[in-house]
């Protein structure tokens, strides 16, 4: 009887929405720039999951193409972002996101 229940697209979309909410919460709450970056990855993955789910339910491969490009851009973004974090941390060790107000004019 349990096997009669099939998870529909809506279930996956709800999981993706909850994952996006958790990622948003993490970016707003955590102060370690590395962990904030990981939370941005969580949000990107939530969007990817939504794309793939809709690609399946609408029988359209273009959703998976979009996910492919999102992954490439996410990889480039992580490389540049971690480079910036490394060069900030070299200057001021153990900086949190709150300490980076040097640009505040």
């Amino acid at each position: 009887m349990l096997s009669a229940i099939q998870p529909t697209s809506t279930w996956y979309l709800v999981i993706a929405a909850v994952l996006f909410g958790i990622g948003t919460l993490g970016v707003m709450v955590r102060r370690n720039p590395l962990v904030m970056f990981m939370c941005i990855e969580l949000m990107l993955n939530a969007v990817n999951l939504t794309f793939v789910t809709l690609s399946k339910s609408m029988a359209d491969i273009n959703g998976q193409v979009a996910v492919f490009f999102v992954m490439v851009v996410a990889a480039a973004e992580v490389v540049v972002g971690l480079g910036i974090i490394v060069s900030i941390m070299r200057r001021r060790t153990g900086a949190t996101a709150d300490d980076l107000s040097a640009l505040k004019g």
Binding site: S9, T10, V14, L54, S55, K56, S57, M58, A59, D60, I61, N62, G63
Partner: peptide
């Protein structure tokens, strides 16, 4: 949840 009925609309991309 409010747009559940639109989930089965087939797009005009390459059919999977």
């Amino acid at each position: 949840i409010s747009s559940r009925s639109a989930l089965s609309v087939t797009g005009d991309g390459i059919d999977q």
